[in-house]
């Protein structure tokens, strides 16, 4: 169809979509030099654009030097050996059982934590969004305080609560419910508990944001149309809250993949997450090539998951609130 149109009309179809500056318009008309006033205006606009963009320069340079350069360097280390020849050795190493089991554990962990966060976060966010303002603000403080408290402090608190002679074991022993201390920490379980505690606010906040924007009249409308409360909830509320759920899941899963601190302290050396493998490969073996390959793989997995979730749910990074 479009082939029949003369090229000029095609151009006109595309043009209005873009924001066209005075400079671009002038340049595209080939008007440069025709009207000195227009030309000067256009040049001034261009200059201003660059001046404004140069305001970002100090920050840009800092991020570039401290983040992009090291990342690029890691990439280089992973793909080239000491003689500068391209090699896949470091990536082939990742297929060894130790690394594969670490990938597996990392994904299992991320999956478990995300699942528990959904199961706990959805009811919590739902009730928060339904409560009257005052009550919901008070409950929100319970979500925000952990969010603002150092992860290290919270992980320490879990260690204190869960360890062999910890608060929970002591209470259970005193109550006579158990006769031997339970192994609650330094294992998979303890790590999941600690990580869920860190991640739950990341699930609740986007969900709450989305749910707060669901018009309560829609639920009344569903009821008017004869829906039972559970039907109305499933067919109206749940569907409308799905984008919030999706952004929560994405956020939690991705952060879990690269999580270091909590598994390192609560895993007791038994939960060998991906990030810990990276750190061990450097600290214990000094093998930069292998560590870099692990790092690049982690980054690629992170980006792929973000991209995949975005494609699946049409997410907009921060989770849209429209």
């Amino acid at each position: 169809m479009n082939a029949d149109l003369p090229p000029r009309q095609k151009l006109q179809r595309v043009k209005p979509m873009k924001e066209v500056s005075l400079y671009t318009r002038t340049r595209d008309r080939g008007a440069s030099g025709e009207d000195p006033m227009v030309r000067r205006l256009a040049m001034a606009e261009l200059k201003e654009r660059w001046a404004l963009l140069s305001l970002t320069l100090p920050g840009f340079i800092l991020v570039f030097l401290v983040l992009a350069v090291p990342l690029g360097w890691l990439f280089w280390l992973s793909a080239f050996d000491s003689n500068g020849a391209l090699t896949l050795d470091n990536y082939l190493r990742l297929l060894r059982p130790v690394y594969l089991s670490s990938f597996l554990i990392t994904f299992q962990m991320a999956f478990c934590v995300t699942l528990v966060c959904v199961l706990l976060g959805y009811p919590l966010a739902y009730l928060l969004s339904q409560l009257p303002d005052r009550a919901s603000q008070i409950c929100m403080a319970f979500v925000l305080l952990p969010f603002w408290t150092s992860i290290l402090v919270r992980t320490y608190a879990w260690l204190v609560l869960l360890q062999r002679q910890g608060v929970i074991n002591n209470w259970l022993l005193d109550l006579g419910l158990i006769h031997e201390p339970l192994a609650l920490v330094n294992n998979f379980f303890g790590t999941v508990v600690g990580m869920v505690h860190v991640m739950l606010p990341f699930m609740v906040l986007p969900l709450y944001d989305k749910m707060k924007n669901i018009d309560p009249l829609l639920m009344s409308a569903a009821a008017n149309c004869g829906a039972t409360p559970s039907q109305a909830f499933r067919q109206v509320f749940l569907r409308l809250s799905l984008p919030g759920l999706a952004s929560g899941i994405t956020l939690v899963f991705v952060i879990c993949l690269g999580f270091y601190l909590t598994p390192a302290l609560l895993g007791g050396g038994r939960v060998s997450m991906w990030s810990m493998k990276i750190s061990d490969t450097i600290a214990l073996y000094g093998n930069w090539g292998a560590a870099s390959a692990l790092g690049v793989a982690l980054l690629v997995a992170t980006v792929l998951i973000l991209w995949g979730m975005r494609k699946l749910f049409g997410l907009n990074g921060q989770g849209r609130t429209d």
């Binding site: 840009f60 983040l67 992009a68 090291p70 890691l74 870099s292 790092g295 982690l298 980054l299 973000l306």
Partner: peptide, 27 residues
């Protein structure tokens, strides 16, 4: 250009912290 600058400057939030640490340590 602005989009590129923006996404680079948001990168520290996206990249897992362990990678930042290892990269920075190396450099």
């Amino acid at each position: 250009a602005a989009k590129l600058v923006n996404s680079l400057m948001m990168l520290p939030m996206l990249v897992p912290i362990i990678l930042v640490a290892v990269g920075v340590f190396f450099v």
